[in-house]
Design a protein around this nucleic acid. Sequence first.
DNA 1: CGTCTTTGACCTGCGC
DNA 2: GCGCAGGTCAAAGACG
Length: 223
Amino acid sequence: MEKYQMFFPCSSSTSSANYDPMIPISATNNITTDDHHMGMGSSQVCNYFDGRDQSSNGLLGLRSSAGNHVGREVLINKDHHQYLQQQYSDLTTTASANININNVIVGADQNPHEATNSGNKNKGEKKTRKPKYAFQTRSQVDILDDGYRWRKYGQKAVKNNKFPRSYYRCTYQGCNVKKQVQRLTKDEGIVVTTYEGMHTHPIEKPSDNFEHILNQMQIYTPF
DNA sequence: CGTCTTTGACCTGCGC
DNA sequence: GCGCAGGTCAAAGACG
């Protein structure tokens, strides 16, 4: 599949002017080398900052946050909150879910450009691939209540991972957002969620505590 | 009965 | 070309 980019710069050496697109997220203290595949199969989560493609719809305000990181923590401003709430609201959950959201890695697809769509019945028709963004959250439950309604359409065993990967699609009519959920082998407490696409509708089941969770949220950089 | 999950089959891309 | 792995489809079953 594809590489994933981090939303945020991980160090001064990986600035937008001089980054290494192939640095895997496994270099962080959260994903080990054996878990390269984690939620992405052959893909890797990369942790570099791409300051280029402003037209890519996925990063919006997040990309402009390059200057906001302080030390190991990346500060999230109001726009980021809104964006996260819209797109990455997997961080919210029911009170019983027992999630540690203080350790969140966010990554995105390196190649949000054109590619053929696997499994597409319309043979020969090129389809624009939506950018993908990967999260990892520490949670005891696989399915987090993010306010959207999802329908599971597949589950696959993943190489080098004892946990299967689940595929979900947003059930809202006309909304084509997908997400993949997988638990890491090396750390069973970590759930990796990969989003593809953007919701075209408001959250269907607004979660009261989401704002509170985001306020507590820190996004760590690996260095 | 409607909605959702499960699961085997199928398709596609990629590496060798 | 072949095999492998990821991604999707769709029929069948479960559940409320």
